[in-house]
Every structure is written in C-alpha cells, then in structure tokens.
C-alpha cells in the first residue's frame, strides 16, 4: 500500500483493501471512478474504526488524497454533482459487467474476465455511497461475485466452467 502514498493498511481495514487497489489501477484512465472508490473506502473505514491511532492516521492520509483529487478534478460535473457521479460509476460498473458477461457467454474464460466480474461487484459496493442500491444492482453484484469465484475455481482446478 506504500506505493499509493498511504501508510500501511491497518488490519482492521482489510475489507477495503481491494477497492483501494482498484482505485490505484483506475487513477489514470478513470479518475472519477477512482475518486468514488476512495470515498467509499473512507466512509467504510470511518464506520469500522476511526479511533485507534493507526486507523486515524490512515484515514487522515486518505482524506488528504480525496481533497487533493477533488481539487484536481474540480471542474468535472461527476465530482461536483454526486447524482452525475453516481451515473458515471454505475455506467462503468455495467461496462465491466457486460464485458465479462460477453466473454462468459462466448466461452472465453480468462483472468481478465474474472477480474472484470469482480471489479464490477466492487463498483456496485461503491454505489452505496450515493444511497440504497436498486434491486437490479443487488442482483448484478451477487451474480458477478459468484461468477468471479466460480470461474476462478474452475480455472484453478483445470475444469471448464459450465
């Protein structure tokens, strides 16, 4: 985690480890999505533990990053208006989901499509910063997470996914 400019991730924040890694990966090509991934990690982290010194230190640094990103992306409507931001993150999550789903239906099973299913499920988690998820989003998240785990296990065991 040091490469991201953040202190080492406290064990209490293991639940946001993957979303912070996705944020780093998306920084260049999808900075708006990366911003909301960090916002989700921030909110989740604050709910988990904002009292112990190592967690406070981590959250303060994460907040510094968020404030710097907001300043940098300040003229982007997807940052200044959360309703636009919500649509942007939702569209990107759907794009990830559809890519993986198309590969799945075409019988092309590979690491990239597993990652896309998993990232889509993480980005649907991120949508909770804007409010309650729609039933459709809940279903997509469940399906994407299950597919990612199922195909991963099949490939690991040398089996062909059905």
């Amino acid at each position: 985690m040091a490469a991201s400019g953040l202190p080492p991730l406290p064990p209490q924040f293991k639940a946001v480890q993957h979303i912070l890694r996705s944020a780093q990966e998306l920084d260049k090509r999808e900075p708006v999505v990366a911003y909301y991934c960090r916002l989700y990690a921030m909110q989740t982290g604050m709910k988990i533990d904002s009292k112990t010194p190592e967690c406070r230190k981590f959250l303060c640094k994460l907040m510094d990053q968020l404030e710097a990103m907001k300043k940098q992306l300040g003229d982007n409507e997807a940052i200044t208006q959360e309703i636009v931001g919500c649509a942007h993150v939702e569209n990107y999550a759907l794009k990830m989901f559809l890519y993986a789903d198309n590969e799945d239906r075409a019988g092309r099973f590979h690491k990239n499509m597993i990652k896309s299913f998993y990232t889509a499920s993480l980005l649907i988690d991120v949508l909770t910063v804007f409010g309650e998820l729609t039933d459709e989003n809940v279903q997509h998240r469940k399906y994407a997470r299950w597919k990612a785990a199922y195909i991963h296990n099949c490939l690991k065991n040398g089996e062909t996914p059905q």
């Binding site: 916002l39 604050m46 904002s50 009292k51 406070r56 959250l59 907040m63 968020l66 404030e67 907001k70």
Partner: peptide, 27 residues
Amino acid sequence: TGSVGTSVASTEQDELSQRLARLRDQV
C-alpha cells in the same frame, strides 16, 4: 488519562467527519 485520550480521539473523529461533509458539500 483514559477520558482525555477518548476526548482527543473523539475530536479528531469529528474533524474527519467535518472534512468528509465538506468534501461532499454537505455543510
């Protein structure tokens, strides 16, 4: 010292909450 520690933690927690609210234009 326990209550002082708790009070400091609570102040810093409030500061984080305030920064988060400002970030999201909720103030």
